[in-house]
Amino acid sequence: MSDPSGPAIEFVNVHYRIDGKHSLISNLNLSVLRGEALMLLGRSGSGKTTTLKLINRLLAPSEGEVRVDGRSTTEWDVIRLRRHIGYSIQEAGLFPHYTVQENVALVPKLEGWEPARISSRVQEVLQLVGLPFHQFSSRYPDQLSGGQRQRVGLARALAADPPILLMDEPFGALDPMTRAELQHEFMELQKRLRKTVVFVTHDVAEALMLGNRIALMDSGALKGIFTGAEFFRSSDTAVKPYIDAFQAMQQTLKAGD
């Protein structure tokens, strides 16, 4: 059933429509390899977030199949599927009535872990995302900065050690300095953890920096999958605006030197 050499996530001829007509995703075929960070790059409304939600079955495909570990998401027990996948979103979606510690501990607790194991795991993941336990564990989300909230969101997603991680513009709402810091730490973390990551972003620089591959989306369709080098070599008309934007940004930076 679960073939360890096969892709972690597979989209096979996936369509997604609202109310049976308005099409958000059309004929998507895509494989996410184990241990890679795949960046879903595209403008707002290109279907990136919809694609992400099809993986943990917050949405179910209207046609075709999304497979996680070789099994269709509609065949999975949906709760098991979601606990197999970490989920981190913009603004973090932390529970405001829970402390940092309680936020991070929730899924392990629901999974029935021993209290001792939970508390050592909470310490471990908070350390991993750069939040000293003794300083942050009993704070509430509204006592944290945006960057700290995002770190807690990531720690919470990692808490039960899921093999797959979905990240929906996790750094989108942060100031540029904090974003750069978190991007850097994400790279370090990914080097060590080697999770299968699907990461939604509209920022081409972020996609190039954090991803092993980039899946470019436009109007609900996949325009191509590229490594960083392939992305720059591509003559695809869909890729060009992104390269232009990236180069314009570099020019601006150089001009500022």
Binding site: R83, Y87, I89, E91, L106, L110
Partner: peptide
């Protein structure tokens, strides 16, 4: 909405969502 979405995405059952998130809030 992001709080609810995160909770559902994390794999809370409808009852767990109600008990741990919705009713307290």
């Amino acid at each position: 909405p992001p709080v609810r979405e995160a909770a559902v995405g994390m794999g809370l059952t409808p009852w767990q969502l109600l008990w741990h998130v919705e009713l307290p809030l």
